[in-house]
Amino acid sequence: MTGAAFEEIVEDFEFLDDWEDRYRYVIDYGKAMDPLDDALKVPATKVDGCASQVWLHPKIEDGRFSFDGDSDAMIVRGLIAVLRALYNDLPVKEVPQVDAPEQLGRLGLNDHLSAQRSNGLRAMIERIRSVASEAA
């Protein structure tokens, strides 16, 4: 239940042996993402539970889920981009069914993020699942 964009990340990670290279990849992936409009960086889009500033702006159009996001930390911005690859353009009813920890585990992220980053990632996933569940 993952899209082509996420599968491409998984394939790219298979060629990167060094975790420094993988971190750089995630950071570069985040840099390539369009920044979130400052007007959308409001308390309603801010994700609590993250060590850095994180905003997620979900959209549901024609029954499909997507979101934009941003962070003041480059690695977190990259994680947002990875989550976008995982969730964007799924039917909204399928979003809560995605086993994000399992999918992200395919990248080995669970083993290489600090406790604070892992907590922030969980908070972002919970926000995504909650918004999609409410909309479904």
Rank of each mutant, 00 (worst) to 15 (best):
N119F: 06
A44H: 12
G49P: 03
L121H: 07
D21F: 01
R77M: 00
T2K: 06
D89L: 07
R64V: 01
A32F: 02
V98P: 00
R106I: 04
L104D: 10
D28M: 05
L16G: 04
R22G: 01
L16M: 10
A81Q: 08
M1E: 06
Q103W: 01
I80W: 10
V26Y: 00
L16R: 14
R77D: 02
D70P: 11
D68Q: 13
M33H: 11
V26I: 00
D12G: 06
E14F: 00
H112W: 07
M1D: 03
A85M: 04
P96K: 08
A44V: 10
K41Y: 12
H57Y: 15
A32R: 15
R129K: 11
R24C: 01
V98A: 00
S133Q: 08
A132Y: 08
P35R: 15
E7R: 14
R24V: 06
L121Y: 02
S114K: 08
L83R: 06
M1R: 12
G105F: 02
Q103C: 03
P91K: 14
D72G: 11
T45D: 15
L104A: 03
D70I: 03
V47N: 10
A39S: 14
V54W: 11
V76K: 12
D70W: 07
L90Y: 02
V42Q: 14
L109T: 13
Q97C: 04
I9M: 02
E11Y: 07
P58V: 11
S71K: 15
L113I: 14
T45F: 13
E11H: 09
L56K: 13
G105S: 05
L107R: 05
V76S: 07
M1V: 02
W19M: 04
M33Q: 15
A32S: 11
D34G: 02
N88V: 09
V26P: 00
V76L: 03
W19S: 04
E11N: 09
A81Y: 05
L104R: 01
A100S: 03
D99R: 09
Y23P: 07
A39T: 14
S133N: 08
D89G: 04
I75F: 06
D99A: 01
G30F: 09
A32V: 07
Q53H: 15
E102D: 13
L36H: 08
R106K: 12
R127N: 12
I27Q: 10
E61M: 00
D62C: 04
G63Q: 14
L86G: 01
G3N: 04
S133F: 00
G63K: 15
E94I: 09
Q97G: 04
S130C: 02
G49I: 00
R122V: 02
K41L: 07
F67W: 09
S133R: 15
A135D: 06
E14D: 05
E7P: 04
A135I: 04
S130V: 03
D12A: 13
V92T: 12
Y87M: 09
V95I: 06
P91Q: 14
P91R: 12
Y23T: 10
I80P: 07
V98D: 01
L104P: 02
I27A: 10
W19E: 04
M1A: 04
R129A: 01
